[in-house]
Amino acid sequence: MSTASTSGPGLDDLVKLELKVLAKDESAAAAEEFIPVFHRWITERVLPELLIDVADYSHVHEGPGVLLVGHDAIYAYDQSRGEPGLLYSRRRETAPESAGIATLDQRLDSLLRCAFRACDQIEAEPQLAGRVTFDRRRIELRVNDRLFAADDDMVAALESAFSRALAASDIGNGDGPVTLERIGEARERLTFRTA
């Protein structure tokens, strides 16, 4: 479904989106434990995209924790709001697996796949010994591009598209339908969270 707008860039043009999948146990691992994990991901090219560097912000209060910086996206064991989780922040789409993404629905589907793949990888990390697991029904979606005005139509279209993407994903099965709520202040990035 196309969600293009006539007054500016439409939602299909919205590349800079973020997903955060919350950890089940907030104290399961310290952010610093992800430093060697992410370095190894770079060395062993664990993900099918260009990974560049690791940045440690574990010293910052409720910050991005430890980041794995890629060319197309940043992965982080994020600590924002005091809720640890896997953050997947897409910046651009040049990796081969992004080829052909043309609509918001396709992009959200791709985002969920990338974020869940990283969650799977972390859960299987020998260095973390299975201590970090994620609740794939507790997810946040953020619009990381303020050029896209958060008017009512856009909010409704995005919420609808995200609901469809969640329903189509694995988490749509099992424990019943997932509902969304909008969180955060008006000046913050537009953010939905599964309720």
Binding site: S5, S7, G8, P9, R146, L147, F148, A149, D151, M154, A186, R187
Partner: peptide, 16 residues
């Protein structure tokens, strides 16, 4: 001037 609430335009150049 808020960069948050200005309405949808094609670029920051145009918006600002």
């Amino acid at each position: 001037m808020s960069q948050q609430t200005a309405n949808g335009t094609a670029s920051w150049k145009a918006r600002l």
